[in-house]
Each structure stands twice: as structure tokens, then as C-alpha cells.
Write a protein that binds this DNA or RNA. Structure first.
Lengths: 138, 138
DNA sequence: CCCCATTTGTCCGTATGTATC
DNA sequence: CGATACATACGGACAAATGGG
């Protein structure tokens, strides 16, 4: 099936493209680790300017759906095997986006939140793409 | 103290500006709900093009630090009073970024992750900016 | 090792639409 | 209504990283 962009739609073209690519990824047309078409290719294929294409990819990055490497391309983010963390009693859990510094120190890409697990006055931070929290089982 | 942009630095100017604004927010120079200078003003003040300023604001949005309203400006995101959710036993907790559709239905802005709490085969989604998860206390 | 084509990153400019005030 | 402000979208240019030869 061929999906096209409608420049006269109320939906911005960059969101249309983001939706098209997101659906294609979810449908398995691009598997984990697979490379998406280049920005230039997407510009030609959908008859869009580079801004629209880049904005669409930015949307997918901030959703954690793809990872972009300079000089190489954009790739579907494969889900890594998560570490299971057992939550102790009296633990408080929040989640937020890391700052750029935290992303570097934790080694996580864009669009990946972090868990903050606080027990007493001790807080630990976990990358949410590699962590599953579990409560104790009955 | 006056902080300036160094166009000859290896650090991209838009990241320099993002860092300057982030530090200013954390230092309390812009309180919760307060409006940042307009994009045009930032362009003049730091002698940058519009892209650089917009990219810097995009960084802060995806970190959940600010909220931008069309026609009005960008505002420091105030932390809302969180709802405390008690985690049951045998619960699994993950966190990820919502898609654009999920953001609309949950009423959350950019840069806000969601909790996914799964018990058995039932999954519930909570906005992470208004939710704190707690394990049972001993 | 260098060369080169490809690809993304950064930065600028302009224009138009739309929402807020 | 006008002025301000952000959103979208096009274009060009050069820098920097990658990967193949």
C-alpha cells in the first residue's frame, strides 16, 4: 500500500510523515536495527523539504522509536533485554526525562526516560529502556 | 552575571543556549510558570539565528523543563501536585515516552514520560509528571 | 593511509499561517 | 483590530562523521 502526504491537510506534513513512518515500524516494515531511508531519500519520495523530514524524525526520536547516527542514518531502536529491579518496601518511584548530561553519563539516547527510585533519603536512577521494576510477589 | 555564546566553541550554539537557559531556570532566575524571553528576543540577545534558538527551546521541551504555547511564549513548567499510586504485589513497572496520540488522550505535554503498571494481564498508564508510585510500607 | 560519496548536524534566510494578547 | 509570538515549511550553505574503495 502506498501512503502519500497531503499538503492541504490540516495535519502538518511533518506529523503525517511521522505517523507514516511510525506505522511502518509498528507493522514490521522496518525491523529493529534496520535503517530508515535517508533524509534526502525521504525528501524526494514524499516531495517534502528537509525541515519537514527532519521534524518528523525528531518526533520519532523523542518517542524513543528511532536512533539517529551522524553520517550513518536513522535506525529502528531495538528493545534491549531489560534488567529486573526488585522494589524494596517504602520505595517511591518517579519518572522524568534526563538532562543532556544525565543522558551521557547513563549512556541512553534521546527519548528514553529515567526511573528515580527513592528509599529513605537515597535515590537511584535507572534508564527506563533497560529496566523493569517489580514489586514483591505474594 | 552575563553569560554569552561562543560561536567558535565545539559545543553547538543551540546546546550552549539550552544549557544557559536550563541553568537559569534551575537557579530560580525564571520561576515556575514564568515566561522566558521570546524567540525573537533570544535571537537578538545572543546574536543567533532562529533555528539555533528554536532548537535550544526544543531541547528544554523534550526534557520537560518548559512548555511552549503558540502565540504566547515559552514558560517554565511548574511541578504539579502528584497523585500517589500504591503499587500492588506482583506489579511490573516500565516507563517510556508516549506517542503523540497518547499525549493527547492523557493530556500531557512534550517531555513527559508515562508509567505502565502491569498486574497480571492488565496494564494501566499514568502520566509521570502527576504520579508517584509507592510500594507498601513495613 | 587517503579519497570520496553519502548522511546527518548545524546555521542562516525567507515566507506564510495561526494563536495570543 | 493590530502587534506580538510561535508553528510550519521551503530554500541554501558548510561542517563533521561514516563507510566503502
Amino acid at each position: 500500500m502506498i501512503v502519500t502526504i497531503d499538503p492541504s491537510s490540516f495535519e502538518p506534513v511533518y506529523l503525517q510523515l511521522a505517523r507514516i513512518l511510525r506505522d511502518a515500524i509498528e507493522a514490521g516494515e522496518f525491523g529493529p536495527g534496520e535503517k530508515l531511508p535517508s533524509e534526502t531519500r525521504l525528501c524526494q519520495q514524499y516531495e517534502l523539504g528537509r525541515d519537514a523530514v527532519r521534524d518528523a524524525l525528531q518526533v520519532l526520536r523523542s518517542e524513543g522509536a528511532i536512533v539517529t547516527v551522524k553520517g550513518a542514518g536513522s535506525f529502528v531502536r531495538g528493545q534491549s533485554a531489560p534488567e529486573v529491579v526488585r522494589l524494596p518496601e517504602n520505595a517511591r518511584v518517579t519518572s522524568r526525562m534526563p538532562t543532556a548530561d544525565e543522558r551521557r553519563s547513563l549512556g541512553v539516547g534521546e527519548g528514553v526516560p529515567v526511573f528515580v527510585v527513592t528509599v529513605g533519603e537515597t535515590a537511584r536512577v535507572y534508564p527506563a529502556d533497560r529496566t523493569v521494576l517489580e514489586t514483591s510477589g505474594g
